[in-house]
């Protein structure tokens, strides 16, 4: 698909600093096709910054990100083309309030992939149907609940046929009773074989769905393991402390 065998994204020694403040101090990660990478960490650990560097919403200040056959961390690369193949879901949903749900989903495929209106709408409706929101296609986003908004945000990203999906704390802004419906959609997506990178505080999701779990602390990957080992047998003392707090 991209580089050798079935690696989708390969991150090498990724660094990011804001002025003098170094947030990411060299993170390397190889993401294979169909993997679900869950990233956990305390707030301020750099986990969201790492995710936002993956599609260059934050420009990395060092290191490489190989995706789609090129190093997208290189500023001379036209990032817009590669972002089309990397879906992103935000904590605050970021649906476009001036557009209907349907238009939210078709605008990028139509304007960027030059899909016809009919094709884009057919595809959008099919995706909406998959998350149970087909009947809301002509509503505006403010008519939806938080959980519904986030489900739309997920399928909006999927409408671009991405090779990888990035989730930046997708359930953190939701009322507790709506977390489940969003996680369900993400689970189904993982089962369907989508490559995913998920920053979250949902430990249940990490245990159940993740291929690998990463603990990011002070800008480095402090621990990386399968979910079983990660939660039952943590090594890093900071991770032990973190898990004892969040699982308590």
């Amino acid at each position: 698909m991209t580089t050798e065998n079935n690696t989708v994204v390969k991150v090498e020694n990724l660094q990011k600093s804001f002025g003098a403040k170094s947030v990411l101090k060299g993170i390397s990660l190889e993401i294979k096709k169909g993997e679900v990478i869950v990233i956990i960490g305390a707030s301020g650990s750099g986990k969201s910054t790492f995710l936002r560097c993956l599609n260059c919403l934050e420009d990395p200040t060092g290191g490489n990100i190989f995706f789609d056959g090129v190093d997208i961390a290189d500023p001379s690369v036209d990032i817009n083309v590669h972002r089309q193949k990397m879906g992103m879901v935000f904590q605050q949903f970021n649906l476009f309030p001036h557009l209907t749900i349907l238009r939210n989903m078709t605008i990028a495929p139509m304007k960027l992939l030059k899909m016809s209106k009919e094709d884009a709408e057919a595809k959008a409706l099919e995706l909406l149907d998959r998350v149970g929101l087909k009947d809301r296609a002509n509503d505006y986003p403010n008519k939806l609940s938080g959980g519904q908004k986030q489900r739309v945000a997920i399928v909006r990203a999927l409408a671009m046929n991405p090779q990888v999906m990035l989730f930046d704390e997708p359930t953190s802004a939701l009322d507790p009773e709506m977390v489940g419906e969003v996680l369900d959609v993400m689970k189904k997506l993982a089962e369907a074989g989508m490559t995913m990178v998920v920053v979250t505080h949902e430990m249940g999701f990490a245990k159940e769905v993740a291929s690998r779990v990463l603990f990011v602390d002070k800008g480095v990957v402090a621990e990386e393991n399968t979910p079983d080992e990660f939660f039952t047998n943590p090594q890093n003392p900071r991770l032990k402390e973190f898990l004892s707090k969040v699982l308590a």
Partner: peptide
């Protein structure tokens, strides 16, 4: 206009 709007646009691949 909320910054997240521009980020969502950029993340979809819009220039």
């Amino acid at each position: 206009v909320d910054k997240g709007q521009a980020e969502a646009g950029r993340s979809l691949g819009f220039s």
